[in-house]
Design a binder for these strands. Structure first.
Lengths: 217, 217
DNA sequence: ACAGAAATTATACGATCTTATAATTTCTGT
DNA sequence: ACAGAAATTATAAGATCGTATAATTTCTGT
């Protein structure tokens, strides 16, 4: 018998991983499945196939699939916020330039991406019907808004303009970013990412001119 | 034999409806299912049960379920845009008051509602993966932005301030509205609907102060 | 009154889903 | 070297899914 294919026969049938590593592998496989198939990608069979393991492994490490999805959400949130803060910290230390780095990072292909929105839309759908997911979301949103608050506060102090309610104003700026992201992903022909940057700078200009100075609360 | 229950025995086993009526009934049943169960509600069995008919009717009237969902999307979009324009037209004719009516309608319980967002999130997920749904979405978004353009143009003319690119500016205002809607539905404790109205008025104030006057494109 | 068109039901098939259980394999510690 | 703990596979059971097909019912037109 001739070995036509010198196939690399694995000496072992599967590799044993630490729970921590395996959980992360499964979480990332889940994200890839969601990118490819949207809500339909949230499935024990598809995710385990994507990760190259059998279905039982998901049950073993996460109990039920919802826990895996929630874990994937945490991975994703953490990664994005980290990417943004890295971009901000890589910028020159002036408030002006840090905020600008924040805006440009938000519209960079890494974040301003249909696939990324696709994942978030699936998460939003789950958040609206799952207290477990909702709890994670509240935490992530809160820290995101706090980040924006810091950037806007520093700019206001450096340039000497007034902001009535910093928290509400930060929520508005965050909403503008998310809304533009959503609109562009659903209607890529409506405007270009650089137009989005421009519109954010216009918003900041409104802030400079005192449009947000009077806020009773 | 005694009739303990004088049950109303229907003389007919089912009622025959015009295709148009039945399609609408099925579309509205689909929306109720999506409100209740999110993505999981998009199912031939659940929707037909909600509508009180058998599964075959959906196949008969829509062919495949995706067509039903797309139809439900059209119903929903049309209804919301119509509700908003009705509110605008009911307001006094001054540009100031018409725009204000638009904003207040956007934050009224009819639109600023978790259930409504839940339906949209499901649609967004489908839009991102279905050309058929995407086409409907592009049309709806476009007419929505055109509506905003009209309101902002009238205000700019009445008050005499400059807007560099009316279309981009309208996209930004639309994004702000959608972003606040999304943020509040996912984090109802973060702010109140009236705060959202306030933030929109601040945005308009920035517009008045010329923050959007200089837009190269 | 009644024939025929179309709406609706009834039923079935194959695919995919989640989860549970038991058997197997890997790897670590001694 | 080897025993045992834990990771992983293997397998199966029961729901639910979408859609196709044929039979039945309703209602309209003449």
């Amino acid at each position: 018998m001739i070995k036509t294919k010198p196939a690399k026969k694995p000496s072992t049938r599967f590799r044993r991983e630490t729970p921590e590593d395996r959980r992360r592998q499964l979480g990332e496989a889940a994200l890839r499945c969601i990118v490819k198939h949207g809500n339909a990608g949230v499935s024990v069979r598809q995710i385990s196939a994507e990760a190259g393991v059998t279905q039982g492994l998901i049950t073993h490490h996460f109990g039920e699939i919802n826990e895996l999805v929630a874990y994937a959400f945490d991975i994703m949130s953490e990664g994005l916020l980290q990417a943004i803060t890295a971009a901000v910290n890589a910028a020159p230390p002036s408030p002006r330039e840090r905020l600008d780095a924040f805006i440009e990072a938000s519209f960079s292909p890494m974040l301003f991406d249909r696939d990324v929105l696709g994942v978030w839309v699936v998460f939003w759908g789950l958040i609206l019907h799952s207290p477990r997911m909702s709890a994670s979301q509240q935490g992530e949103y809160s820290s995101y808004v706090v980040t924006v608050e810091g950037l806007l506060r520093d700019l206001a102090e450096a340039e000497g303009f007034a902001v009535g309610n910093l928290r509400l104003t930060s929520i508005a700026f965050t909403a503008l970013l998310d809304g533009l992201w959503l609109a562009w992903c659903l209607n890529p022909a409506a405007f270009r990412p650089e137009d989005g940057i421009l519109l954010c700078r216009n918003w900041i200009e409104g802030l400079r001119r005192g449009a947000y100075a009077e806020q009773v609360t």
